[in-house]
């Protein structure tokens, strides 16, 4: 039968993205546990990767995935993140089976599809699988760009269908306090 034209070509992405995995091996340092698994620069390679790996809900607690623009490490210390922050979406344990995986996929699709007006401010996204609260963070480069960060937050809420408020935290505040005690610079 006929193959749709869209299935015969590769669709390039605006950016090349890296998938990272945080291993949580107690014998290693935090940095050593951050593993850059692979990169992808077209839609087809993203889907091939996505279908190959476990969903966040299947990961053991203490593990993370991160999807960041190539060259940006998923850590505060990276030059691209030093002046930045994150929109934080917290999920209760009961949401692990209903919302975690679809929120994570929708966040990645927003990122790689450049669906924010201010996509240039996006560094990447992280999903933390934890005991009490799972977290998804969308990291941006410059906390002083109010309009850009607010646009990103509103787009996230709208696309994921989140009804409650979400907050934006500076990395330098999160560094010194646990995320639940960190003040929000912005809220939408």
């Amino acid at each position: 039968g006929e193959i749709p034209l869209d299935f015969t070509i590769k669709h390039p992405l605006q950016n090349t993205w890296s998938l990272w995995f945080y291993d949580n091996d107690r014998t290693k340092t935090w940095e050593e546990n951050q593993i850059e698994l692979t990169t992808f620069d077209c839609v087809e390679d993203f889907w091939r990767l996505y279908h190959h790996i476990k969903q966040p809900s299947e990961l053991r607690q203490g593990h993370d995935y991160a999807v960041f623009k190539q060259g940006i490490r998923p850590m505060w210390e990276d030059d691209a993140n030093k002046m930045g922050g994150r929109w934080l979406i917290s999920l209760e344990k009961k949401q692990r089976n209903s919302d975690l995986d679809r929120f994570w996929l929708d966040v990645i699709l927003l990122l790689i599809g450049e669906n924010f007006d201010h996509s240039e401010e996006i560094c990447g996204a992280v999903v933390n699988v934890r005991g009490k609260l799972d977290k998804i963070g969308v990291w941006t480069a410059d906390t002083s760009k109010q309009q850009a960060n607010l646009e990103i937050g509103r787009k996230l809420k709208e696309s994921l269908g989140i009804h409650g408020k979400i907050g934006f935290q500076l990395h330098r505040d999160t560094m010194v306090k646990h995320s639940s005690a960190t003040k929000n610079l912005y809220t939408v």
Partner: peptide, 18 residues
């Protein structure tokens, strides 16, 4: 400049591409 933008629905439609 120009930017390559894909909406969610289009990305999802390519999910089953061989």
């Amino acid at each position: 400049g120009t930017r390559i933008v894909y909406e969610r629905s289009y990305l999802m439609s390519l999910r089953q591409s061989p």
